[in-house]
Amino acid sequence: MRTHGWSGTAPVDDAEAVERILAAARRAIDRSGSDFSIAEVARDLGVTRQTVYRYFPSAEALSTATAIAQTTHFLDILAEHVSKIRDPATAVVEGIAYTLERLPHEKYLNLLLTPGRASAFSAGVTSDTALAFGRSILQRFAVDWAAAGISDLDELVEHMLRIVQSFVIDPGRPPRRGAELRTYLTTWVAPALDPR
């Protein structure tokens, strides 16, 4: 059995390898921020860069996977924040507004959505990963989506992600916050939640 690489302890399977790479990326992000390198992650693991690239084709892909893996904390906070809201339109408006307001305070969510990374976010806003992430957010809301006549959560998630994307890319001049942001979203986003 080969023992070089992986600091002498090879992973038992690909799932463990991915888990270790994500943990090393998390440590690198904690040390270096979003400008970490694949080489830094490889050194931490005791492997070559090619080994990391075998699982993640770029630093961008690794950064995104790490951020998504670490957003459970934010999802819990968001779910608690909207836990008493049963109206779909109000929940969506508050979910979008709260996400935009928390963005500067949530390191890993920030990796996914910051304006400096807008091109990466733009390219993947409707990816399967983004849609799955969004669905996991909506499923934590206290809204009975089916009873509200909303059967296609993927389309709702796509709409919400496109709204968030728009505000991330161009927050406005000056950026809307608080009640002003919620009023804007209630006027222009909430009507999309009316049953057809």
Rank of each mutant, 00 (worst) to 15 (best):
T187H: 14
G149T: 07
I85V: 06
M160F: 04
G172A: 02
R135D: 03
H81M: 06
D14N: 14
R27Q: 12
E19Q: 14
D194P: 07
S32Y: 12
A79G: 11
P191M: 02
E80C: 08
D87K: 02
T71W: 04
T48D: 10
V92I: 10
E180L: 12
H73M: 14
D35M: 07
A142S: 10
A120N: 01
I137K: 00
H81Q: 08
S119H: 05
A42G: 00
M1P: 15
A39P: 12
W145P: 15
D76V: 00
T114Y: 07
V93Y: 03
G172R: 06
R27V: 13
D144R: 07
I38C: 07
A147G: 11
A120V: 01
Y108L: 13
R117Y: 03
A65S: 11
E101S: 14
T129W: 10
L153I: 12
D152I: 05
R27D: 14
R49Y: 09
A39S: 14
D35H: 13
L22Q: 08
I96E: 01
A79Y: 00
Y55D: 07
E16P: 13
P88N: 09
F133R: 03
A39N: 12
S119F: 01
K107Y: 04
R86K: 09
V12T: 11
T187S: 14
D35N: 15
D35W: 05
S127T: 12
E155N: 05
L131C: 13
V164K: 02
A89I: 11
G134Y: 00
A120Y: 00
H4A: 15
L22K: 02
S136F: 01
A179K: 11
P11Y: 01
A146T: 12
I96D: 04
I29G: 06
G124L: 05
V168F: 00
R140H: 08
A97K: 11
A42K: 04
D13M: 08
Y53R: 11
W6G: 04
A42Q: 00
G178Y: 02
R177I: 04
R86M: 03
L185S: 11
Q139V: 10
K84W: 06
V157A: 00
V189S: 10
R2P: 15
L153Q: 01
T72Q: 15
M1R: 15
D154A: 08
Y184S: 15
I137N: 08
T51R: 14
H105A: 15
A89T: 00
L193I: 04
A123S: 15
R86W: 05
D35S: 11
K107L: 12
A146M: 13
R27W: 09
V41N: 01
V47M: 04
A25P: 12
A142Y: 03
P57R: 06
E40N: 09
G5S: 14
A59I: 02
S122A: 13
V82W: 02
Q50K: 10
A190I: 02
I85W: 05
A120G: 12
E155L: 10
